[in-house]
Design a binder for these strands. Structure first.
Length: 297
DNA sequence: TCTTGCCTAAGAGGGCGACC
DNA sequence: GGTCGCCCTCTTAGGCAAGA
């Protein structure tokens, strides 16, 4: 028997989950069925692809090679199926999106109209921090990636699609709330709450501090935007957040945006994809739907 | 000791081609 | 068209080993 797409798909899932059992759950199979498919693939290729050390599964060097090819082959087949479906006017397919957590305030509002316009396209949305997104990008696990800043080292094609202004937020009862024309010196001694290391928002905040020669004390680092906003709201300090992610809190008065020279910092949301990747029709349709760069305000 | 997860064996079910 | 046999894919059952 030749290598089958089924075997490659199952092997890819095992490699991604690091477990036969979890792969089986994901594929709605039993663990022995998954094991058997991978074993057949190994027998056909006459080389072990997975080695077990203790209870942990690890890919062999051959396994890594096969995994890379499996991803390419399966992506190509999926793309082919969607293109053929497109030719038939069926508009069926799947769009896998991975977004940084702060983009979850922006993307769902765009997915609604897209989904209504393309009812045959299934959408898989993964939300993670920047580090997780870059890991998925490296593994080519999704069609498109939404993030604030695209690292220069990333082998990516990208384009900005929307403005993403950053503002300094404070609790409504904060002494600086409502004051006009504040400068960097006014916040130089204010305690700040930072996002986790690697966060684009944090990088922009630190750049502002450096450029203005200030070093506000950092009271805590939090990994989730909600936690940051809650900490600010309870008066633990100031923070810099995407205006879009704090829209509701600003509207309801739970938080206030401070009027500080240099803010809002104008950044953009970017959509990126691996350089050279052949985008599926679904991904191309979503790209088309995102506002082009020249319309960004 | 118990739990979890890998692995094997045996067998069921369904697809498919060959044959009548 | 119906039957048979082969093969693939899957499930269940159970053994075994590692880790908590």
């Amino acid at each position: 028997m030749p290598v089958t797409l089924r075997q490659l798909d199952i092997f890819r899932t095992v490699a991604r989950t690091g477990s036969y059992t979890r792969a089986a759950e994901e594929l709605h199979l039993t663990q022995p069925a998954v094991f058997a498919q991978v074993r057949q693939l190994e027998e056909h290729l006459q080389t072990p692809l997975i080695e077990r050390i203790g209870k942990m599964l690890h890919l062999t060097v051959a396994g890594e090679t096969v995994l890379a090819s499996a991803r390419t082959i399966l992506d190509e087949v999926a793309s082919l199926e969607m293109r053929l479906a497109d030719l038939k006017g069926l508009k069926r397919g799947r769009l896998a999106l991975c977004i940084v957590s702060t983009a979850k305030y922006d993307i769902p509002g765009r997915l609604g109209p897209f989904s209504r316009a393309n009812p045959g396209i299934d959408i898989a949305l993964t939300v993670g921090n920047r580090e997780e997104l870059l890991a998925r990008f490296a593994a080519n696990e999704d069609d498109l990636y939404i993030l604030g800043t695209v690292p220069e080292t990333l082998q990516a094609e990208w384009r900005p699609y929307a403005a993403n202004p950053l503002v300094v937020v404070a609790a409504p009862e904060h002494r600086l709330a409502g004051r006009k024309g504040l400068g960097p010196e006014d916040i130089a001694s204010e305690p700040f709450i930072l996002r986790e290391s690697g966060s684009g928002t944090r990088a922009a905040m630190e750049r502002y501090f450096d450029e203005n020669g200030i070093a506000p004390p950092v009271t805590m680092e939090l990994g989730a935007n909600e936690a940051v906003k809650e900490a600010v709201r309870t008066g633990l300090g100031l923070s810099v957040v995407s205006r879009g992610s704090a829209e509701l809190e600003l509207e309801t008065g739970r938080l206030v945006a401070l009027d500080i020279k240099g803010f809002p910092i104008l950044r953009h949301w970017h959509v990126a994809w691996p350089r050279g990747k052949r985008l599926s029709p679904a991904a191309e349709a979503f790209l088309d739907m995102l506002a082009p760069e020249q319309e960004i305000v």
